[in-house]
């Protein structure tokens, strides 16, 4: 659908461009700018420090701890919200005959619920003393640690809470890709007695790879941002930065300890990471012809 060739298009674009300029592009530039200064948000003068903020970030062990945490978050989020829905959507679209619509709409329900609700409900479900999970485990002679105070596990729990929200959404998106693989193609493989596992790996994965790569990137990009809410609500990055990630840490620098320089530098670092992902995705689309219609 193309009917015109002229600059009047910008009339339609103007409102969007205005808000994007004010609340997206200008802030981006400003954060970049502020990452070269030392400031505390209230002092009238900002002191130019060059690359000092970045240098101190790169030399601080805390940064590496945060990067480590971020990596752990990414791995868990990908396992739960990328790998699992991918497999499950294949199961649903190829091996199950009844109830597709039902599972689709039921799985999505948590995705419309606030993560603050998720956080508060999960603190009770996973309460180490009186929560239902603790009681269940007690019957089996097991117990849950005080997760909010335990290194490692705290990241797992916060990832689980976040996954609860994004699982259904991811499931629907990847199901869209997986069910885009033509039924005939799957049947052609079934006739040749190809086991389901191989159909998934050899046929469905490559044929849905466009959606797959998109979801892979989005799981990281959105997931890390979503985790912010349970971190902020439940642990504030603690104990001792054990649950902080790049996004939360920059919030912490900016709005808790008011060190805008390192805060902005961390934000730019996050952006660099995400840009790399974006770049990889576009490279993928350029290089590999994808097979979704």
């Amino acid at each position: 659908m193309k009917i015109g060739r002229d600059k009047r298009a910008f009339l339609y674009l103007a409102p969007s461009l205005a808000v994007f300029a004010a609340f997206m592009f200008w802030p981006l530039v400003r954060t970049f700018y502020l990452s070269f200064f030392s400031w505390n948000m209230v002092k009238p003068v900002k002191k130019f420090v060059g690359l000092a903020n970045y240098a101190s970030l790169l030399s601080s062990s805390l940064t590496y701890r945060i990067l480590g945490n971020t990596t752990v978050y990414i791995i868990i989020l990908l396992a739960v919200n990328f790998a699992a829905p991918y497999i499950l959507s294949f199961v649903l679209s190829c091996a199950v005959k009844r109830g597709k619509g039902f599972y689709k709409s039921a799985y999505f329900m948590p995705s419309v619920v606030s993560l603050v609700v998720g956080s508060i409900v999960y603190t009770w479900i996973l309460n180490p003393v009186s929560g239902p999970v603790a009681l269940l485990l007690k019957h089996l002679g097991l117990s849950i640690p005080v997760w909010s105070k335990t290194d490692g596990i705290v990241i797992v729990v916060l990832s689980v809470i976040t996954s609860w929200k994004i699982f259904g959404y991811n499931f629907i998106v990847i199901l869209g890709g997986v069910s885009g693989v033509s039924e005939e193609v799957i049947e052609a493989a079934l006739i040749d007695d190809v086991p389901l596992r191989r159909i998934f790996i050899d046929i469905v994965l490559p044929m849905s790879s466009a959606t797959g790569v998109y979801l892979f990137v989005m799981t990281i990009v959105q997931g890390l941002q979503y985790v912010f809410t349970p971190i902020k609500v439940l642990t504030q990055g603690g104990p001792n930065y054990a649950s902080s990630n790049l996004i939360y840490q920059s919030y912490h620098e900016l709005f808790v300890v008011y060190r805008t320089g390192p805060g902005c530098a961390l934000s730019i670092l996050t952006l660099a990471l995400f840009s790399l992902l974006l770049f990889l995705e576009f490279r993928f689309f350029e290089k590999k012809v994808y097979y979704e219609s």
């Binding site: 033509s182 005939e184 049947e187 052609a188 493989a189 046929i203 044929m207």
Partner: peptide, 8 residues
């Protein structure tokens, strides 16, 4: 198959 169902 009608649409050949080749693995693209």
């Amino acid at each position: 198959f009608q649409n050949y169902a080749l693995f693209p």
